[in-house]
C-alpha cells in the first residue's frame, strides 16, 4: 500500500522535461533582454523608455494566450467532466492574472514619461483592468466551494464568459478613440515597426511563451500535489486513525 502510494507520489512529482524547459526559459529570457536592451536602437521619438515595449507587449499577449487556454479548457471540462481540464484552466488563469498585472504595471511605467500620467480611464486601460478583475474573480470563485465538481463547473462558466473581454481589450483601440497606440504588428498593410525592433519584440514574445509553458508545467505539478495531499488528508483510513 505504502509502496503504491510512494510510486504514485513519485509519478506525480516527476520532473522529466521540466529542468530542460527551465533552462530554455532562462536562455530565451536572456537572449530577449540582450536584443531589447543592447541590440535595438532607441526610439526616434520616445528615446530609451520605448524599450519597455519589449516586455509590456509580450506580457499582454501572454495574458491573452493564458485566458484562451482557460476558455478552451473550460469548454473541455464542461464537455467531458474530466478534472484534468479543470486543472489546466485553473493553472492558466493564475498565470494569466500574473501576466495581466505585469502588463498593467509595465504600461503604467511606460505611460508616466510618455503620457504624463500613471493611469487614465482610457478604453484599452479600462478594459484591461476589467479583464484582470474577471480572472481574479475566477480564482476567487474557485475558493468559494469545497465541492470539486461544483467548483470546476462554476469556474468553467466564468472561464468561458470571461473570455469575451479579451477581443474587446484587443479591439478597444480600434473601436474607440484611445490614448493608447493602435495595432503595430497585426495590421492591414503589414507591421509598422523597424526590422530590428520587430525581431526583438518577436523574441520577447517567444521568450514569454516558453516562460508560460514552464510556469504551466510547474503549476500543474503543484495542482496535482495539492490535490493528492487533500485527497490523502480526507481519506477515511487516516480519519479512522485520528
Amino acid at each position: 500500500m505504502a509502496a503504491t502510494a510512494e510510486r504514485a507520489l513519485g509519478k506525480a512529482t516527476s520532473r522529466s522535461g521540466e529542468h530542460l524547459l527551465g533552462i530554455a526559459t532562462l536562455v530565451a529570457l536572456g537572449v530577449s533582454a540582450v536584443l531589447s536592451l543592447v541590440v535595438t536602437p532607441p526610439d526616434a521619438v520616445q528615446g530609451e523608455v520605448q524599450r519597455i515595449m519589449y516586455v509590456h507587449v509580450p506580457a499582454a499577449w501572454l495574458a491573452y494566450l493564458s485566458f484562451f487556454v482557460v476558455f478552451i479548457a473550460s469548454i473541455g471540462y464542461l464537455k467531458t467532466k474530466k478534472t484534468r481540464w479543470d486543472r489546466v484552466a485553473a493553472a492558466s488563469a493564475e498565470i494569466g492574472v500574473l501576466f495581466t498585472s505585469l502588463a498593467i504595471v509595465l504600461g503604467m511605467l511606460w505611460g508616466k514619461p510618455v503620457w504624463g500620467t500613471w493611469w487614465t480611464w482610457d478604453p484599452r486601460l479600462t478594459t484591461t483592468a476589467v479583464l484582470l478583475l474577471i480572472y481574479v474573480a475566477y480564482l476567487a470563485i474557485r475558493r468559494i466551494t469545497d465541492n470539486p465538481s461544483r467548483r470546476a463547473r462554476w469556474a468553467a462558466v466564468v472561464g468561458i464568459v470571461g473570455f469575451i473581454d479579451v477581443p474587446i481589450v484587443h479591439l478597444s483601440v480600434v473601436w474607440w478613440r484611445s490614448l493608447h497606440q493602435g495595432p503595430t504588428v497585426f495590421r492591414l498593410g503589414g507591421p509598422e515597426i523597424e526590422g530590428t525592433m520587430l525581431l526583438a519584440l518577436l523574441a520577447g514574445v517567444a521568450a514569454f511563451t516558453i516562460t508560460y509553458a514552464y510556469l504551466m508545467t510547474l503549476r500543474l505539478r503543484v495542482g496535482r500535489l495539492e490535490e493528492r495531499a487533500a485527497r490523502e488528508a480526507l481519506s477515511p483510513l487516516v480519519g479512522a486513525e485520528r
Binding site: 528615446g47 523608455v49 519597455i52 509595465l106
Partner: peptide, 15 residues
C-alpha cells in the same frame, strides 16, 4: 544616464 532610463530599469526589474 539617458533620460527616463529609470523607468526602463524599473520595468525590467519588475518583470
Amino acid at each position: 544616464m539617458a533620460a527616463n532610463a529609470g523607468y526602463v530599469i524599473a520595468g525590467y526589474l519588475v518583470t
